[in-house]
């Protein structure tokens, strides 16, 4: 099953199986969060499962990811995160000390995000039937404004922003697996983005959409925008913030940082006229200190993401179906 890297293959699996089975107007949006109108209030609801090797890595662990991932899905949909659930699938024999460590970091992350874990569930599976521990979280938040956010709101002339340097999390994880023998000071970017998202919404009335750039990285988010809004997304390669350590490791690994997962960065698209204001607002928050405009939305070629290179060339930055495979014959 090549269905995990967050590209076209994942979409196909989701659409072929789950969308078919559960089809309804809310699910059809295929957004990270569902927006529910209940009486006078609008709630955002989301769920996510977390699988990571190693469970503990520089800058965080699976517990941080499980809280922050769900908080971020709520935050980028424009909601104020409120309550979370947590489910654990634990392999028989998993050290209790590790479980305590995970629970502790979940509580720390929840405190930082100002949310509460209000219910949960635990199952134990036989030895060898799980990678130590899987965590599933669900979350609910409240939307306290009446703005419409989403990739289909994007229009030509808009500016594309990333909230900080990309690729830190994915590269940190690859190095943390320890099979490359590379020493590095890199840490995961896992963080809760609720304040940053709120700051952006406050500063720029013309925010069209926000999306945390997890699996498949920034490139996958941009492709989603290009397709949903039937626009061209044109990115300047030189404008994309990437830490030199990440760039170096990515080069060694033969991986493009644009496709590497982040756990504390989002892509935002805002009205082109508000891009300066938006970036300034983001930069005032520590998590957004290196926020930058990386490109613009255009009319044509609709549905494509283009990358302007330093030489002045323009490359097509497509969604990958699975893991990156060599293409040079």
């Amino acid at each position: 099953l090549a269905h995990g890297a967050g590209g076209k293959a994942t979409q196909t699996l989701v659409e072929a199986v789950f969308l078919e089975a559960f089809r309804n107007p809310v699910l059809e949006q295929l957004d990270d969060s569902a927006v529910l109108e209940i009486g006078p209030s609008r709630l955002a609801l989301t769920t996510d499962s977390f699988v990571v090797t190693p469970l503990f890595f520089p800058g965080g662990d699976i517990g941080h990811l499980a809280i922050n991932g769900t908080v971020n899905d709520l935050a980028v949909s424009g909601a104020r995160p409120l309550y979370l659930t947590a489910g654990f699938i634990i392999e028989e024999g998993f050290p209790v000390a590790d479980l305590i460590r995970i629970a502790t970091s979940m509580r720390e992350a929840a405190d930082a995000a100002d949310v509460h874990v209000v219910t949960g569930d635990t199952k134990v599976v036989q030895r060898g039937k799980g990678d130590g521990c899987y965590v599933t979280t669900a979350g609910v938040g409240v939307i306290e404004h009446d703005r419409r956010l989403g990739p289909s709101e994007v229009r030509p002339g808009d500016a594309v922003i990333v909230s900080g340097p990309i690729g830190d999390h994915g590269i940190t994880i690859m190095l943390a697996r320890g099979d490359l023998g590379i020493e590095s000071d890199l840490v995961s970017d896992t963080a809760s983005l609720h304040e940053l998202a709120a700051a952006l919404l406050d500063a720029a009335p013309g925010v069209r959409m926000m999306r945390d750039a997890t699996r498949g990285g920034v490139a996958t988010v941009l492709n989603e925008v290009a397709r949903a809004a039937e626009v061209a997304v044109v990115v300047e390669e030189d404008a994309i913030p990437v830490r030199p350590e990440v760039r170096g490791a990515a080069e060694l690994l033969g991986i493009d940082p644009l496709y590497v997962a982040c756990e504390g960065r989002f892509v935002a698209v805002v009205d082109g006229a508000e891009s300066d204001r938006a970036v300034e607002a983001l930069r005032r928050h520590p998590l957004g200190a290196r926020a930058a405009v990386i490109g613009r939305v255009g009319e044509a070629p609709a549905g494509l993401v283009l990358l302007k290179t330093a030489f002045g060339g323009t490359r097509i930055c497509d969604v990958l179906v699975g893991d990156p495979l060599p293409r040079i014959c």
Binding site: M174, R177, D179, L180, G181, I182, L252, L253, G254, I255, D323, P324, L325, P326, C329
Partner: peptide, 23 residues
């Protein structure tokens, strides 16, 4: 500076698909 890391990538299959390429 990179030899050992590339050898490790090859050995552990880190972004290292198998190839029968003549090139």
């Amino acid at each position: 500076t990179q030899w050992a890391a590339v050898v490790a990538m090859a050995r552990n299959g880190v972004n290292a698909p198998l190839t029968s390429s003549a090139g």
